[in-house]
Write a protein that binds this DNA or RNA. Structure first.
Lengths: 216, 216
DNA sequence: ACCTAAGTCAAGCGACTGATTTAATTGCGG
DNA sequence: CCGCAATTAAATCAGTCGCTTGACTTAGGT
């Protein structure tokens, strides 16, 4: 599985170093508060232009970070998708939405930075589209959403998209807030990522099941 | 009601000009992508240091914007708080949480920038605390939260705080997403801010009422 | 063994940043 | 009516930014 040449290994190691350093600095200081120079030196590269050389612009770097994690999350998605089988219980499909994220964060060990990174990128006007593209590139996710919608066929389309957006916001920002609390050693409502997922699923299922007030 | 002197009016007008220009640029381009210089010239001030003169650092400017809107929102809060009276229906208190925000955005006319501004500030590690402080400074909000908690006395404390945080995230980012869609002329799930509030209240009430899965 | 191509490094470019300083403008109180 | 103090304007500062350049190092092919 190792690279076919010593040189290629060196390169991918450098890229990985830059990627993780950038992710950490972005999460802790803010994406736009960190320059490519700082990232390069934090990654141990004497070259202050290493980021530009390997990735190009900052938007490209953000995309590379998102894609790296996106790949790992996608693997978990296909697994939970398989586990869910052909269930008709909405709760199972909400779990398929939530657990890939929380399990990925749990697998990263402690501390993590990705959730805070995602939250920032999702709210930044210049980077928002990047994250959206990378997320929509997941076939498993689209399948899960389809099955989720199938489990409540009589919900109006506008409410479906409205609550779908809410569920997305909830997952991203709840994870980011927990990650922030962990980083600051502040008390968290839940003891583990697994429990956090349970709380999220409870809340999102309740949200989806909520009766719709007729306009008037 | 006007200022007591011509000069004082001039000054507060300049401050207001800077405030609105900054809010707009922050929402459209990102808080850290906009320099104080750009804000000054967008506000029609030949002085490229006008922002620094009137407000100080960028964090101070952010706080000033948050405080300006916070004051208006607080007025709506005390009104809806009065309207809710001594209701025991949780839905009324969730409405007290949601409507001040949506009604304020509706009152601002179109387009608005404050919701996107808030979403960014809330997710930025360096600015997050500022927004939190400004929000917690609202006595009406604290009262509403107390009444809301009182309407579901048998909910465990951890779940209470967990879902409280979720409701916060939901309100901020749902409004920001709608505002973004309006700015880009993208279809929105709801036709008005009033309907958006209805959808938010439906969802949040459903979330609060959701049964809590026992850990296991 | 030598050459090519790719990766790394150090230096420097112009542009821009926040902050400070100086000068001109202007309403206000005496 | 005039000096004062506050505000705006303009110029300037040192520092950092992204980006480009050219030299150096080294793996892989011939």
């Amino acid at each position: 599985m190792a690279g076919k040449s010593v040189r290629a290994d060196q390169v991918s190691a450098t890229r990985e170093l830059i990627l993780t350093a950038a992710e950490r600095l972005f999460a802790e200081r803010g994406v736009y508060a960190v320059s490519n120079r700082r990232i390069s030196e934090a990654a141990g590269q004497g070259n202050n232009a290493a980021v530009g050389y390997h990735f190009g612009t900052k938007a490209d770097l953000v995309r590379a970070i998102a894609r790296k994690h996106g790949g790992r999350i996608e693997q978990v998605r296909v697994r939970v998708l398989d586990e869910a089988g052909d269930s008709n219980d909405m709760r199972d499909w909400v779990g398929c939405l939530v657990r890939p994220v929380t399990e990925h964060l749990a697998a990263l060990g402690s501390p993590t930075w990705y959730a805070r990174f995602c939250a920032q990128v999702m709210t930044d006007p210049a980077l928002h589209d990047i994250m959206t593209e990378e997320s929509l590139a997941s076939p498993a996710l689209r399948c899960i959403v389809r099955r989720l919608h199938g489990s409540m066929p009589d919900l109006p389309a506008e409410v479906r998209s409205e609550r779908g957006a809410m569920a997305r916001q909830l997952i991203v920002h709840t994870c980011a807030e927990r990650e922030r609390a962990l980083a600051e050693s502040t008390p968290t409502p839940r003891a583990s990522w697994h429990d956090t997922a349970t709380g999220l699923v409870d809340a999102i299922v309740g949200m989806w099941r909520a009766p719709v007030t007729r306009r008037g």
